[in-house]
């Protein structure tokens, strides 16, 4: 696992995605889109009716977040990741459309990992509960669709050096499994020593 930080400029092309590996600590810069459960549901329902997505999904990165409202003079409120597994129902379709980057926290279903392997997807983890820190890396925020959904509306964000860790890479390697196994091995060795 890489210890040093790597700067990554979005959009996330398939070529770029394949250079990112499980455990890499990455600083993302570029445009990303927010969407949670309600937005995913509406997007996929609209797609079925032939209505296009509110943003171009090709090489896009979706941040699973519902921020707190911005105080006057601020870009955004606290903005940490929500549990990604709730979006598993819709994620394979989004990935198949080219939205290969996802930022969230928590475990994913095999169906999502399969789609990631097929379309070179990357699942990034931001620190859950660190909304005050993460908001500092969000430089622009524009509401672009589904305003009626309140905190679940789709926002276009411009982030600079947004700190994430590659949890699942395009080959399907999963930090939740490997990181824990690695720790338990290290802990056992420490106990013996």
């Amino acid at each position: 696992m890489a210890e040093e930080l790597r700067r990554v400029q979005l959009p996330l092309t398939p070529e770029l995605a394949r250079t990112l590996h499980m455990g890499d600590n990455v600083l993302l810069t570029g445009t990303i889109y927010t969407a949670r459960d309600a937005a995913h549901e509406r997007m996929t329902e609209n797609l079925a009716k032939g209505i296009p997505l509110p943003f171009d999904p090709m090489n896009a990165t979706i941040y699973y977040v519902g921020p707190t409202p911005a105080e006057p003079g601020k870009v955004i409120g606290s903005a940490g990741p929500t549990t990604a597994g709730r979006m598993d129902k819709w994620a394979p379709e989004m990935i198949s459309l080219g939205a290969r980057g996802m930022i969230g926290k928590g475990a994913r279903q095999p169906s999502v990992v399969d789609a990631m392997k097929k379309y070179s997807g990357v699942y990034f983890g931001a620190i859950g509960g660190a909304g005050a820190l993460l908001a500092k890396h969000i430089k622009k925020c524009k509401l672009i669709a589904y305003e009626d959904l309140g905190p679940e509306a789709i926002r276009e964000l411009y982030v600079e050096d947004f700190p994430v860790t590659v949890i699942i890479d395009s080959e399907g390697n999963d930090l939740y499994k490997s990181g824990r196994a690695e720790y338990l091995k290290l802990h056992e060795e420490n106990q013996k020593a």
């Binding site: 977040v65 921020p67 940490g80 909304g131 005050a132």
Partner: peptide, 15 residues
């Protein structure tokens, strides 16, 4: 994060 929220008087978490 919680020290930043404390000092800057902002929500610790978005939830």
């Amino acid at each position: 994060n919680f020290q930043t929220a404390d000092k800057e008087n902002v929500p610790i978490c978005q939830d």
